[in-house]
Design a protein around this nucleic acid. Structure first.
Lengths: 212, 212
DNA sequence: GTCTATAAATGGATAGAC
DNA sequence: GTCTATCCATTTATAGAC
């Protein structure tokens, strides 16, 4: 008797193949650079013909999009940064978590956080994952202190900057990594100062109004 | 009478041609992305045959190297950030200068400050220019306050982070640009704190020694 | 969904005449 | 220094048989 393959089985099979492709794509990207990734190499390493990839991805950009989404999914599957007893500890955990994630895989960081592939923009679905990961990472911090969007933007910029400088100017070293705790102290100071003067959070500088 | 072209004239001619090539290369890179730059396009836009470029550059990477050097030379030819009356004003000037330079030409920023072209590393000569530009930018700050290398590294990281986030997540906008003054305030606080407690600049945290 | 064959183009780079 | 001609590899992508 010939059993019909269940749709469920088909879907699983396809998902598994898709996962293999994405995984191998990361491997090649790490070897030859993100821009150096080629569908030919990818297919060869998978033991399949290059055109076969097109039954999984409509274009190379679609593959990049899958990688982009996969990168953020990987983040969301990790143990989240621990909520500490105070703001400083919590922010330190969040910052270390993000820095670790970025330095663990520079090519992944390049795709997720820099605009480096000409013409590539993540799809709305993939970008939604990025947003989710962003909120998820910041959640422990939100739990222990009131933060504005500006606070979070500044925090993300500082961590991003440390990562960026570390990768560009001292790859494999620790020149900027070891500044992380100092950077956290600076940011905590800002948050504490906010908490102390909730009524005038930006009151350190005064601005003239144009038409008083 | 046939006049011999003076070596001087030849050198000038060559330098001018070289400058034209570099300028056009920037233009194309801005159009098609840094990685999307091709020697064929470049030659066509210059009205010359592609192989002719090889009398100016030994390889495509050599062209990238020339662009890298040119980018930093452009910085060094600008009006330097003004030294202000106090640390805050001076740091603000330096930070704004750098941010302006980066946002003015994202592709240039990408080449100068990120490792994005597979296999490309600036030559020692080009990298020396980068160092020079770095020192030149920081000079006004050094003139008004004692800064350690760690201070400068943290400062550069913070500014770089703002630029990086601005370009990646809000290109053309001001979401991170408008955080610059706040970031400067944070950094100034660190520098002031240092000045107040010169004996124990990192004494806020205590560490246990392994073998006391 | 996989393959072969092939398109249609681009890539960087070299040889050698002028 | 500039050109033509060419190499040879590579690219993404499509057509169509199985």
């Amino acid at each position: 008797m010939l059993a019909m393959p269940s749709p469920d089985w088909r879907a699983k099979r396809r998902a598994a193949a898709l996962g293999d492709i994405v995984e191998m794509a990361w491997e090649l990207a790490r070897e030859h650079g993100l821009a150096g990734l080629s569908l030919r190499d990818l297919a060869r390493r998978l033991g399949m013909a290059a055109p076969s990839l097109y039954s999984y991805f409509d274009s190379k950009h679609a593959l990049y999009d899958a990688l982009f989404a996969d990168g953020y999914r990987a983040m969301l599957e990790m143990d989240p940064p621990a909520e500490g007893d105070d703001v400083r500890t919590t922010l330190r955990n969040v910052a270390r978590f993000y820095m670790q994630f970025a330095l663990d895989d520079p090519v992944r960081y390049q795709l997720l956080s820099q605009r480096t592939i000409p013409g590539f923009e993540p799809s709305p679905e993939a970008y939604a994952l990025a947003q989710e990961a962003y909120d998820w990472t910041a959640a422990p911090l939100r739990a222990v202190v009131d933060v504005t969007q500006g606070d979070l933007d500044l925090i993300s910029a500082v961590i991003t900057g440390l990562v960026s400088q570390q990768l560009a100017n001292d790859p494999g070293g620790t020149r900027w990594v070891r500044l992380l705790d100092d950077a956290v102290d600076l940011l905590v100071h800002r948050l504490e100062q906010r908490k102390t003067h909730p009524a005038s959070p930006r009151g350190r500088r005064t601005r003239k109004k144009r038409n008083p």
